[in-house]
Nucleic acid binder design. Structure first.
Length: 209
DNA sequence: AGAGTGATCATG
DNA sequence: ATGATCACTCTC
């Protein structure tokens, strides 16, 4: 039986949590089935000071309230009229920081993921989706793992439907982690260029970014 | 490079 | 109430 990451794993700054999550296993339990992937790409969002964060300037709204909760909970939001994105809340209660999960290497339940991804895509389903296309983006992995707003606020430490298992004891060595600017935050001025996106060096499952 | 899609948020 | 925006994806 695999060990889950405990509460204190999450109660640190977003950059630390973002890097520590690389290589860990995200698990979704649905209809008695396990869907799982190794986290290979993340982004840190630093709270009130971070112009790219939903909680910039201390904004606290119905949508982002999960970000204000204790570390180890889910923050799931809906965007572009179509997509969900999944964040892991970091820090402690009242510190609105989070880590966006941007890509997974799928490892369990690939056929079910493929089904969930293709049934919702239009036409051209003549070829099955490649493993690389399953979870290589924040909205793609939500579709593959059936993560939607029902899971917003879910407790990753104690919950039954969504959690993270310890797949490696320590953070990846620094040489295996690449840091770049975050994707899709060009509006965030000086915060747009900070290297707060992290991925596993050479990994084929990262998003194109 | 452009379209799709609608909730969300800051205005007023 | 209204309108601009959006931590994206797919197809051209």
């Amino acid at each position: 039986m695999a060990t889950r990451l405990a509460r204190d794993f999450y109660q640190h700054n977003a950059q630390t949590v973002a890097k520590s999550l690389l290589g860990q296993r995200l698990v979704r339990l649905i209809a008695g089935q396990r869907l799982a992937g190794l986290i290979v790409e993340t982004e840190a969002y630093l709270g009130a000071k971070d112009k790219a964060a939903h909680t910039f300037n201390g904004r606290r709204t119905k949508r982002n309230q999960s970000m204000w909760g204790d570390g180890g909970h889910a923050y799931v939001y809906f965007t572009y009229g179509m997509h969900f994105c999944f964040n892991v809340v970091a820090g402690t209660h009242g510190d609105p920081v989070a880590v966006l999960i941007r890509a997974l290497e799928p490892v369990e339940g690939l056929d079910e993921m493929r089904r969930r991804r293709t049934s919702k895509t239009k036409s051209s389903a003549k070829h099955p989706l490649s493993d690389l296309a399953l979870c290589s983006g924040p909205a793609k992995l939500c579709q593959a793992l059936a993560i939607d707003r029902n899971l917003d606020g879910a407790d990753l430490v104690a919950g039954e439907e969504l959690f993270i298992e310890k797949a490696r004891a320590k953070m990846l060595p620094r040489a295996k982690i690449v840091a770049t600017p975050r994707v899709g935050v060009s509006y965030a001025q000086e915060w747009a260029d900070k290297p707060l996106r992290y991925f596993i060096k050479g990994c084929a499952f990262v998003s194109r970014g």
